Amino acid sequence: MKPAIPVYDICSLSMGKDQQDLLIERLNHYLQNNYQKAIHQHGHSFYHLVLFTKGSGSHTLDFTKFSVQPYQVYFMIPGQVHNWHFSPDTDGYVIHFSETFFRSFLMHHDYLERFPFFSGDSKDQVLTVPLPAREEVKALFEKLVAEMETPQFDMIRVLMLQLFLLIERTSVREKKKAIPQQKLLVLRNFQQLINKHYRTIKLPKEYAELLYITPNHLNALCQDLLGKTAGELIRERILLEAKRMLTNADLTVTQIAYELNFQDNSYFNRFFKKYAGITPDDFRKSLNN
């Protein structure tokens, strides 16, 4: 049987360095040691981000393919699946950090979730740094690389937070103009609840109860801000997890249906084909093409 999709931790990618919570390197050096691992679908147990400064190729994040461009930056959260194919001249910077790296540093443990690029939604995780901000962004990466020589971790945390705030301010596509902050907060809370409970809570009305609003209010808010119903957002998250699990050849379709709390295998197959356009088995076969 084909082996299960690998899920790497930071130690497995640090080439002998005793790195459990943090890795910061120039991308060309990182690729020399890890390119063969990265060309195949794999997952991470940590947060991961890359800034490209030159080169070409493509990378796939949760089954959405992106072309590499200079000063593109992409982010991943633990549990996502990706792979890449880059030209030999590709360069930039790569940062890995564990889920616990900021935990003792920040009062709000969910602080990173405020950034759209840490949402786990691939369309918000790949950004192009605009020209006026490029030198400042690159300078922060250079400081982070230099700081790793004799790491003072609180300084690294401060620089990383500065980088996240700068990218949010300059690079996040503005889709929320003139929208009250309260609406955005409810939507983000809904998305976070879906990420936590998609296996067991399937109905918009159940999420509305957790948010102390009516189902109609929740649905109207999703339609207004995203052009989708609350039910669509829930189904998209379930479908995404099904795709991730299907990359693991050690899991049968029946096991995946059970893990996602479908009534039976045939119901899961109908759900997947309706929203993905192909059967789970055909999707699994397509990963090898």
Rank of each mutant, 00 (worst) to 15 (best):
P70H: 04
H29K: 11
F86M: 10
I201P: 01
R157S: 05
L31M: 12
H109Q: 15
F75R: 01
F52V: 03
Q152D: 12
F101S: 01
Y207F: 14
K2P: 15
I10A: 07
A146V: 07
K274S: 08
H96P: 00
L226R: 14
K17R: 15
R134Q: 13
G79V: 05
N288K: 09
H40T: 14
L239K: 07
K183N: 12
K65P: 00
A133P: 01
Q263R: 12
Y212H: 13
C11H: 14
V73T: 06
Y8N: 03
E149Y: 11
Y8P: 02
L23R: 08
G92Y: 07
I201T: 15
Q80M: 13
Y47E: 01
D281T: 10
A230W: 04
I24K: 04
V81L: 11
V7F: 10
E142P: 00
K228I: 04
L211W: 13
H40D: 11
Y71E: 05
Y47V: 07
M160Y: 01
V7K: 12
K123T: 07
F268R: 01
F262L: 04
L166M: 10
Y74A: 01
M155R: 15
T60Y: 07
Q182D: 15
K123P: 00
R103F: 07
L287Q: 08
S87E: 09
D9E: 07
M160W: 00
G277M: 06
F117Y: 12
R114H: 13
V137G: 05
K273R: 13
E168N: 13
M160D: 00
R103P: 00
A249C: 10
F66N: 03
Y74Q: 07
H82C: 05
P132D: 13
Q69F: 01
E236Y: 01
L140A: 05
R103L: 10
K274N: 14
R284Y: 02
N195M: 06
A178H: 13
P132Q: 12
Q72S: 11
M148D: 06
Y275T: 03
V94R: 06
L144C: 02
N83Y: 15
P88L: 03
L193W: 02
R244Q: 10
N33H: 14
T252I: 08
T128D: 11
L13P: 07
T60Q: 15
G79F: 05
T229M: 03
G43T: 05
Y8M: 01
Y74H: 10
D9R: 09
N195Q: 13
P280E: 08
L131H: 10
L23H: 06
D121S: 11
